[in-house]
Amino acid sequence: MAKQVPDTRNVGKDAMTPEGTVNRAALPAIFNPEDLNALEAALRLKDRVEGSTVHILTMGPQRAADIIRDAMFRGADGGYLLSGREFAGSDTLATSYALSCALKKIAPDVIFAGRQAIDGDTAQVGPQVAEKLGLPQVTYAEEIVEVKEKSLVIKRRLEHGTEVVECPIPAVVTVNASAAECRPRNAKRVMKYKFALAGSEIAAAPESPAAQRAAAKEYLQIVEWAAADVNPDPEQLGLTGSPTKVKKIENVVFAAKEAKKFTAADEDINSLMVELIASHTLG
């Protein structure tokens, strides 16, 4: 499971309006960083287990197909895009429900996800999906230590240490940023998969050479599902299926308060230190 997110870590000067609020259009959409760690964990498992495959599942608008292509460039075999207005306004629970419906259909042996997404930092979707599917979970995974026939031995990173657990599969594994970094895009794979398209991308321009190429070759087709394709209970989707509601949004405007200004000049730093010592701020 992966998510395309606005790059909230790089909120530069142009990303803030003069009023001090966020200018969303200025934020690029990226592969959620910890989902890349999760992809690497999945690819390493694939390397160890002959005949296994790695697919990306993401929910989002059509452009989220970008991260599926990106994953294919790095070693994934294909992907599923869950897209449609029925999913709009989902909180973490409704998102988890939609993803779990798709996963019931895909039925993978191991479901990897990043620990959390940088646009919400909630870390809820992994455990919530696991619960919906009735599967055990291993959170904060750092490394798969051993692959057994019906279980995985996994090292977890805790706040003040590590823990090694053995978990039967199928299972949900959420991967920490401290796990191995994702391998880079492979030039050959980029050549092979750059024309991979989701269903709606093909439908948008069916006569284009890219669309005709993708339509002719199965490995270039990203599976795209609308709500109806995953047999959900409509009551549990989108805004209706979200127990939490946003009551109010306040854009953060930094309160103007005049700071006393100093430069790097010696006399400035000297007078600041004198002032701080005199006021007993520094002992």
Binding site: T92, L93, D121, T122, Q124, P127, Q128, Y140, P243, T244
Partner: peptide
């Protein structure tokens, strides 16, 4: 919102269909 709370509170909310606000 510790590693423990963030691990199992989402599961509880998912099982009870109750919603959960993090952090």
């Amino acid at each position: 919102a510790t590693p423990v709370g963030r691990d199992f509170a989402p599961r509880v909310s998912s099982a009870l269909h109750s919603g959960l606000t993090a952090d």
